[in-house]
Write a protein that binds this DNA or RNA. Sequence first.
DNA 1: TAGCTGGGTTGCTGTTGGCAACTTAGCCAG
DNA 2: CTGGCTAAGTTGCCAACAGCAACCCAGCTA
Lengths: 159, 159
Amino acid sequence: MSNPAGRVGRVVRQNVVVDNDRCSIARALGVVGERWSLLVVRDVVNGVRRFEELREHLGVARNVLSRRLAELVDAGLLDRVAYREFGSRERYEYALTPAGRDLWPVLMTLMAWGDRHLADGPPPVEHEHLGCGGKVALVPVCEHGHDVDPADLGLRLGR
Amino acid sequence: MSNPAGRVGRVVRQNVVVDNDRCSIARALGVVGERWSLLVVRDVVNGVRRFEELREHLGVARNVLSRRLAELVDAGLLDRVAYREFGSRERYEYALTPAGRDLWPVLMTLMAWGDRHLADGPPPVEHEHLGCGGKVALVPVCEHGHDVDPADLGLRLGR
DNA sequence: TAGCTGGGTTGCTGTTGGCAACTTAGCCAG
DNA sequence: CTGGCTAAGTTGCCAACAGCAACCCAGCTA
């Protein structure tokens, strides 16, 4: 590793370079980094759970969706659960697992970035605190309770 | 749109479905959703700025990296800036634009998710508040200052 | 003048994405 | 009990993109 400044435990602002296959970002992207994965998760979060609904809303080819869903089930982000409607045979829909549900902050930050940098109007969707109706954002806070200015954000290598 | 519950202004917990090309998540993924984009941004954030360094650290093919960098410059996430070292000709390195820098929350949430769900040990990197040394996380807070429990997070359609 | 180095481009090949057509399982109507 | 309908796929084919390796190019140094 060509990382002179990145000694263990040292706080640095740059040149914190982790071997790529140990990096959690790289690993996360290995699971949800493919073309439709996060959009599928987004739709399932939003209540679109069935194959045909997903295909129609996403405009994705059936075989691609089929593969993506199988991979997401496989990766433990979705569960394939049976359901049956009146006068129809048993079918399957897709539900989030806890791991899948935990992706909501990723979706939220992506959405915030898109709202900010790619918008052509007001944000089409906002997150809201059901308790009080206020808009919700993700803010960086340190374990001692300080609000953290992004400029004061450092990286520390673990052991 | 097949979205009976999603009337404008109505707060709902699911079936909030936005037309795909107006969705900020879809747009964001259109820019940073391709295979190496976020990893390149991550490396540039971490101080890896030059073509050869990026290529070596990411293990990506030159032509692919070349294309990705051009696209990221094009999309306004990176700037191609000249530099010159003693005894070398002028070369170029890549620096984050404000829009690129604003991706840090996306990287942070991805990292947190990977740390939580794909880890095989302690987190290799942590974010730290340079003021006090405390670990930093992104927490959902509403505009009225309440900490928001993820279970109390709703979606609201904009106009 | 020849060689080195960073930062690419070009050509070839293998994998993935996308479309369209076909399949399958159960329900229902005649 | 035959034929049609629907959701949820599967299969086949083609085009686009990723990956690898080889080559290029501009300026520096020897």
